[in-house]
Design a protein around this nucleic acid. Structure first.
Lengths: 113, 113
DNA sequence: TCCATAGGCAAGTATTTGCTTGCTAATATA
DNA sequence: TATATTAGCAAGCAAATACTTGCCTATGGA
């Protein structure tokens, strides 16, 4: 459970997405994060490690606690990649809209069931 | 190499992102896609299978060829997820801008090095 | 000072990934 | 019809993933 420190890889795991979600609300220490999940502290700790290694969260020591704070700048990379293809789904939405419009008009001119 | 058919998982692999990129330009058959990569046809074929199973590409049989066509609607899911955190990186950009502005002003009022 | 709490490290396991080689089937073309 | 091309299937493999259990070290409060 190591080696790849890439944002796309990091957010591929649903648990890690949940952790980010949790931390986007407020910073939490490792154990508190772990409590929210149905797995051992170690498992969560590893996810936290991966997230921090790829820069999506920042860890700061506070006494005996390690506070995890979301640092979501790196998500911009993902946003930019996806953005390149926005036209593809918007195009499809457009034709769906047109189709619904078409249905709407058909409904207006007679044959109301 | 199976089991998970999830968009986030699908785009986690750089080869698969490249395949999508390639196909967003124009539809291609499996072998043509495979030629662009430095790995066996089988390996690419598996990536294509995964992409089609999670709905990011559509396969259509044409004689003995299988044409792969990008179908990027599913990326909206990713876009929406990332969008929720846009404020986080834009916020940071803002404070960076403010900081740069600050520097700029400092430069103007005297002490030009 | 003693003990509970926070949390890291290491080893072990099952499953999934990413890729290979070898083979077969179907469709085109000479 | 014989041959080349497209592409799937199956088995095999090393590495990575996603976990676990067990242990050990700090820090902080009673």
């Amino acid at each position: 459970m190591e080696a790849r420190r890439d944002v796309f890889q990091a957010i591929a795991d649903p648990t890690r997405r949940e952790i980010l979600d949790l931390l986007s609300g407020q910073p939490l220490n490792v154990n508190t994060v772990a409590e929210r999940f149905d797995m051992t502290r170690q498992a969560v700790s590893l996810h936290v490690k991966i997230l921090s290694e790829c820069g999506l969260i920042v860890l700061r020591q506070q006494g005996r606690e390690r506070i995890c704070e979301a640092q979501l700048d790196k998500l911009r990379e993902v946003a930019q990649w996806v953005e390149r293809y926005r036209q593809f789904w918007e195009q499809h939405l457009d034709s769906l809209e047109q189709y619904l419009d078409h249905l709407q008009k058909q409904k207006k001119h007679g044959r109301k069931k």
